[in-house]
Design a protein around this nucleic acid. Structure first.
Lengths: 121, 121, 121, 121
DNA sequence: GTGGTCTAGACCACG
DNA sequence: GTGGTCTAGACCACG
């Protein structure tokens, strides 16, 4: 899986990596149990500091998406806990996006098609 | 329209205000041409620095949502330009939200119902 | 409130600080709304790096014990969420401690007196 | 006695095994003089490295919980030395747990009942 | 070899 | 002035 950093983005690097890994897990590109690159390898690949990647892995671990151990490095968790609900912050954020899309003249149907597209990725 | 600040949020205050105003315009709570409170009035009401509100208004103006003049203060624009498309950053953000929702066990249908709900507000 | 670091402890510095602040909140030495030292001030006082203190504050924030904002620095939260139950890891840890105490010949009553003592601090 | 490793835990594997054996001795599940599995057998059973089990046994021996000899392997000690007091680190750790439990809204009585439960296991 | 911690120093956005 | 992020480099325990 290829991680791409937008250096001009306001989103911190560790969060950009986090988001891309979460999307990779969601799409199935990263399977349960699959090995992630080591902290050092990913840092080298992206051209950033190991601390930054380490921060990403700790966040993903705390969120329950991955597990880390010193022998095997980081791996995608087999059974990710499912709350069954969208988080409050994501709900608020979704509402903001919908509002902006509506003001831009994007129809409800177009948004739903977008979501269908994301689900079939 | 009542602006509520979440002091525990990581979203900067000026952005929280901006988002709520945009959502207010989208929902129709704020009509085209409608007067917004003055910078000072809003700052006083929320209990924050005038600089912060000022930053919000400048952003909204630059985004084309409001217009300001010295005589009338800030007003919601009558004809907000419609690009017809969702912005790149919102698209990426939407994809992230959908990914996280899916991993949480939220179905496509539930997400779409959420969107319907936001559209009818 | 005075933070003391045991440099020979296996407990990481950021966690030692975290633990002492949590104990300070629990005992009432740190009141809700009370200002914590700035990251820089605390780092200087203890003689450690600002990053380490920053890590502590971010952890405490994520756990819901404190809140941070750029204007006011870090403050103890007024309403700390109460789950009403002891966490799984604390439960396991408590069981381990009880087991070791029992093997050391410490009676049930002595342990309970210890707890009474901690509660009245 | 069955040893269960939590691969998601931050507690090192050798320490998880150590803790479970200590708890087994405390509860009486492991009697004085009882034979422990060989390093190899336990490593195989749990599916970990023999080095890790070996580290556990060395720690337990050093702590005075078990004794090892070449002929009989590892056995639970008949007379475990009783200091009569809780160790400093366990005292500190107990205080931390009590603090967190209190902040979570757990009453003194509930904690004591937990301890009673651990003592009667 | 792996992730985890820490330092010394820097720059940034927010307010 | 504040916390948040990031770098370059180091050392450590675990396995």
């Amino acid at each position: 899986m290829i991680i791409k950093i937008d250096e001009y983005s306001d989103v911190p690097i560790y969060m950009q990596i986090r988001n891309q890994i979460v999307m990779g897990i969601s799409s199935g590109e990263l399977k349960g149990g699959e090995q992630l690159p080591t902290v050092r390898a990913l840092a080298l690949e992206i051209g950033i500091n190991t601390m930054t990647v380490s921060k990403t892995y700790q966040l993903l671990k705390q969120e329950g998406y991955i597990m880390t151990d010193r022998k095997n490095g980081a791996r995608v968790r087999e059974n990710i806990a499912q709350s069954g609900v969208i988080s409050d912050s994501n709900r608020t954020e979704l509402k903001r996006i919908v509002s902006e899309a509506r003001l831009s003249g994007v129809s409800k149907e177009e948004l739903k098609e977008l979501i269908d597209g994301f689900y079939s990725e």
